[in-house]
Amino acid sequence: MSETLQKADPFIEIDGELCKGCKLCIDVCPKTVISISDKLNGSSYHPAYYLGHDCTGCGLCFYACPEPAAIRVVKP
């Protein structure tokens, strides 16, 4: 593991096209760093998105999300 990665912050990747907008990730996030988009995705859902900072990499949103591939959490 590189020095850069070790120091990097945890982050969440949400694939807006795979999200069905159930909001469960928002519900469980202890840091409230996920929000729901105003825009509709290709399946007519308002997808969740990561605010871009303060994720701790706890992974709770990953387990709360019913979709296999909509959320990816990286904790360097």
């Binding site: 069905k20 469960l24 387990y63 709360a64 019913p66 979709e67 296999p68 591939a69």
Partner: peptide
């Protein structure tokens, strides 16, 4: 057309259980 999402409704518990089994 949607080959990367499940057929389940938004918020369905099956998705969670599937994920944990997998």
């Amino acid at each position: 057309p949607h080959k990367e999402t499940t057929h389940y409704c938004p918020g369905c518990g099956h998705g969670n259980v599937h994920k944990m089994i997998a």
